[in-house]
Write a protein that binds this DNA or RNA. Structure first.
Lengths: 155, 155
DNA sequence: TTAATTTAGGACAAAAGAGTCTTAAATATA
DNA sequence: TATATTTAAGACTCTTTTGTCCTAAATTAA
């Protein structure tokens, strides 16, 4: 997988928070139920995003997590970078340490071009962009199977 | 990592075989020594490539492995597909099963564009292309650290 | 025929990723 | 104050990936 499962869950949850940016704090239990992600696992991931400053959290009744900044200002590059690091945006496709312009691997030049397309996409896509897709065109954040079994809960 | 370690090792070994396509069979021990890849691990990976038909193998003295087809005719898409499958060339970036034109995720459209750049790169790059880079421009297949410690063995 | 070389195949171990669970701390409210 | 709610933190388990090792089978050559 290009992105780890943790990263995918973190991204989906971030978009969910963007969809509910008007509300105060959202309990992780609600996110995990709506997105069908294990509560405890998601908790760990969102704790990481909180530590990295992307989310703020609040304990106790009416507590939960929320985006630190408005969804328009959060690029998905930051979410991915916080969870998976920047290897996919900067790394050598043959995983050769020290691959660069000085000592390139045989795919260095062509891969750099493609890699920059990936990087640009993540740098220019905000949580608001993805949330808009979900709202305007009914795009989905959960497994199609789960949509079929409970269409009313579509997120 | 975009590609698994197995896949990276399989690719590096395939380029090595392309570099020595004039010879008969190359023992896996030689590849593992030159590329500094664990012999036993590499053996398993190359067995897989043999099973998939990309390599032919021969047991006994003067045995080893060799490319089934000339390096010019082997695209690296096939090597990656044999080891890691086609998920990176076809999969949803949010790993949502059933993501497609009918039921897209919010990144479906933009990711498909970028993913096709990746796909095209791997479809249009042959082992001969990579081997040429290694030969003509002295590009490398091994870790820079190992090059420094043994520059004469550069591959 | 015997010995050496080499891949095939599978058991096994270590490390990393994914997922579960329990307890502690903070907070709100009755 | 007492209780319920919620995140924080860390131990723990399960699975997958990565890596090691051993034995069998095929082949060559002495």
């Amino acid at each position: 997988m290009l992105l780890s499962k943790s990263c995918v869950y973190g991204l989906r949850a971030s978009v969910f928070l963007a969809l509910h940016a008007d509300r105060e704090y959202i309990p992780i239990s609600e996110i995990s139920e709506k997105l069908k992600i294990s509560f405890h696992f998601l908790t760990k991931i969102l704790q990481l995003l909180t530590q990295k400053g992307l989310l703020v959290s609040y304990r106790g009744p009416h507590g939960g997590v929320a985006l630190t900044r408005p969804p328009k200002e959060v690029i998905i590059y930051d979410v991915v970078n916080a969870i998976d690091g920047d290897e996919i945006f900067t790394g050598c496709i043959l995983s050769l340490p020290g691959c660069g312009n000085q000592t390139p691997c045989p795919m260095h030049e062509s891969w750099t071009l493609v890699r920059n397309k990936i990087r640009t996409l993540f740098l220019t896509t905000s949580l608001a962009d993805l949330a808009k897709g979900v709202k305007d065109n009914n795009l989905r954040l959960v497994d199609i199977e789960q949509l079929i079994s409970a269409p009313a809960d579509k997120v």
